[in-house]
């Protein structure tokens, strides 16, 4: 815990709002690039992928907060809500681009959700995140009470790996990138289980 103390002390002086500002910046940047040719000649698919991947990265970072604190003592817990909400923001835009730009047709949307497993899984992952985003305020936490709130927010342990599976299922050929994300997410979850057991044992 030698370095954790000074780092935590320094972090206490860093406010949370920059995480929102910096974290949400990629989205308008991606839209700008897509509109001006910066994402190549097929901007719709590229925009969809960038938004989805950025969302997954923030959600994965949110999952890393607790293991990081348990392993190193460094606490980023103050920023975790911001990481989660910024992740959700990108995933929601990813979904909007798919609906409004990619498919552009409600019958196609419905058919895809029902017929294509990777879309079904992605949709389920998104729907699991919605109640978490809605109950992310202090007021919601107070109204639910910490026990129920924490129980509800365990849905994230399901939603994030499902998001990575959704990513892994849509590539062609043997491509490592989505599997690396899935592996990292599962490792973070496994670490959490192991650490919890260790704590109970003590």
């Amino acid at each position: 815990m030698g370095v954790a103390g000074p780092i935590n002390a320094a972090l206490r002086r860093v406010p949370v709002w920059p995480v929102y500002v910096i974290g949400m910046a990629p989205a308008p940047w991606f839209f700008w690039l897509a509109a001006t040719g910066g994402l190549g000649v097929e901007p719709i698919a590229a925009l969809e992928q960038r938004l989805g991947l950025t969302g997954l990265q923030f959600l994965t970072a949110g999952l890393a907060v607790t293991p990081l604190r348990r392993l190193t003592g460094i606490s980023l817990i103050r920023y975790r809500r911001a990481l989660g909400l910024v992740g959700f923001f990108h995933i929601a835009l990813h979904l909007c681009v798919w609906l409004a730009l990619d498919l552009q047709s409600w019958p196609l949307v419905w058919a895809d959700i029902l017929k294509r497993p990777y879309i079904t899984i992605g949709m389920v992952a998104f729907l699991l995140l919605v109640p978490l985003a809605l109950t992310s305020t202090d007021r919601a936490l107070r109204r639910l009470g910490p026990v129920r709130w924490r129980r509800l927010h365990r849905l994230v342990y399901l939603a994030v790996p499902l998001g990575a599976i959704h990513f892994a299922m849509l590539v062609k050929g043997w491509q490592p990138e989505p599997l690396v994300y899935l592996g990292a997410i599962l490792a973070l979850l496994a670490l959490r289980i192991r650490l919890q057991r260790a704590r109970v044992a003590v």
Binding site: A34, A35, V41, E42, P43, I44, L47, L101, L103, Q104, S105, L108, A111, D112, K115, R116, P117, Y118, M169, L170
Partner: peptide, 22 residues
């Protein structure tokens, strides 16, 4: 005949930009 993971009923012509329909 759909690909098991996506529909083959429609396609997007490359070059139509951000609002290119299927």
């Amino acid at each position: 005949v759909d690909h098991p993971r996506w529909s083959q009923a429609t396609e997007r012509r490359i070059g139509g930009g951000l609002f290119s329909p299927r």
